[in-house]
Design a protein around this nucleic acid. Sequence first.
DNA 1: TTGAAAGCGCTAACAA
DNA 2: TTGTTAGCGCTTTCAA
Lengths: 336, 336
Amino acid sequence: MHPGTASRALDPSLPDRVTAETKRKVEDAARELGYAPDPAARSLRTRRSGFVGVVVPDLTNPVIPPIVRGIEQVLWSAGLACLLADTDNDVEREAALVAELQARRCEGLIVSTATRHSAPVAALSGGPVPTVLVTRDIDAGTLPFVGADDASGVDRAVGYLTELGHDRIAHVTGPVELSTTVVRERAFREATERRVSGEPAPVLHGEAFTIPAGRRAAGDLFRRRDDITAIVAGNDMIALGCYAALAEAGLRCPDDISIVGHNDMPLASSLQPPLTTVAIPQYEIGREAARTLLDRLAGEASGAPRVLLETELIVRGSTAPSRAAAPSTHGLRARV
Amino acid sequence: MHPGTASRALDPSLPDRVTAETKRKVEDAARELGYAPDPAARSLRTRRSGFVGVVVPDLTNPVIPPIVRGIEQVLWSAGLACLLADTDNDVEREAALVAELQARRCEGLIVSTATRHSAPVAALSGGPVPTVLVTRDIDAGTLPFVGADDASGVDRAVGYLTELGHDRIAHVTGPVELSTTVVRERAFREATERRVSGEPAPVLHGEAFTIPAGRRAAGDLFRRRDDITAIVAGNDMIALGCYAALAEAGLRCPDDISIVGHNDMPLASSLQPPLTTVAIPQYEIGREAARTLLDRLAGEASGAPRVLLETELIVRGSTAPSRAAAPSTHGLRARV
DNA sequence: TTGAAAGCGCTAACAA
DNA sequence: TTGTTAGCGCTTTCAA
């Protein structure tokens, strides 16, 4: 038996390069000897490493794991393994890990970036390793992006609130360094401009997608305005921060103020009150990002497309008709 | 310049194999040319792949991500990359992924197994690839294990409940296929046996670590017993299931029944009531598992040690003094 | 259809 | 200390 023949027999991509007879014999022998081709040698010869790098900002952020699962699942079934790298939302770490992943000859990269300004990520466009961005875009817009259609989700949220009679709606955002914040904020401004008369709706910036950040920003909001009857939160953690600020201000949700979150993270329905939120198809986003990368690896696509998957407004207990609709009990006015 | 010399200059493990002068020259040239050694060729020569496989049962399970982060962080700083594989709690998938990871020549494996009976995982012991189990052990006990000291955590939970005057305590477990369930259940039986007089405390089995499973099991419990005043839940999701079953039975937590969870998952403090729970050091468990693997890779350890990290009882709002302490208002008796 | 041979890029052993 | 050489295990071209 000759190594070349064996190699041919074991290669499933070109069948019938050998006799059925030889093929069977080779396979039997391989099984008997517990033989499996050495990936390093194969990789050296074929110039393909067989894995892709997956860069995430923080695995502890509840939006991320389902996305990673989706990615991982599609990639494994395409015969590719995932090298996982967590940047901890740190641009320097991100730069180091991206470099390391390239040095390891990943065939492709799927990145959820630390910030929309990330230079190391932007530098990937036009480079040798095909890259797809997931959930978090960069300003440059030069790389393929797969995420949720947050804008239409926010628009629907604002629409729902106005249907409930709210006309004093505020937005408490996440960190401005993230594209998700920018997109949601713009969508909020446009939606309120279109649907609510009067002066522009207030927008407060949280410095992170965390409960304390949301609480601080919402606290500021309540100190400045006592007429707000509804809040669109940058995400569900921010919404939880709003819950806390509300409680501190002696207000109740949804009786005094309605709140809408974003993402429909796990346990959103177990909170008190259960959170009305814009759900994004996290798992499907991951799968689609992986598929998009596979297309590029196959050389079947180019450019920097943006794939936006549909969102859904999940109505739960944190939203209710505005009491401001009846002017005499106008929102927070009651307490001043 | 000769390739051998360059290779020596670039190898940080044996310093001073070359002149400082040559070393500088080589490094400059490398930088200028953007040269980085090809990992496949290096791997082929050195017989080291430079990565380890990380097998998880479900990245969506809130206990897992912090552990993976810990693993990933320690491993990266040791120059090893993580190949991530999610088995979705499926033994066949687990078998396939473990095989694939071995075929890819992982230097080591860190596994959180799908079940404590997993044959493919058990087969890893004594095999060529060093393996460390994390959070979930196998019955065979033949592999190194790193996890939390659940037993003492459960013991402390039961102790705390008895201090509050509870003497009718039940346990709603997770799935019996997991070592965590077995350990916690045994600890519960021993603790109640030691601290509570009378007949053995009731134990109900949930079929998964999910809210519906906890709800079903707790519902069964309430149908069978109306004297229970406290529940030790198999984990926090089971505890949430208990919340639901409680509400359905027209009971309140902690007024009628106290509940203690396990893990202190994210948002446990945001639930209503905030969940009293046994916290496990998830991140540190991951780090320690990675360190344990590194020891084996360095050949500095053998055997199958069990490393148990300390737990902590976090007291929140789901536990309160037993009303049964005052016999006339004895727990659930009030409603029958 | 199969055999033979070359070579992917590196590192380790040996020679100078 | 540096240069030279061989070979890791595979795939692929070319020849038979």
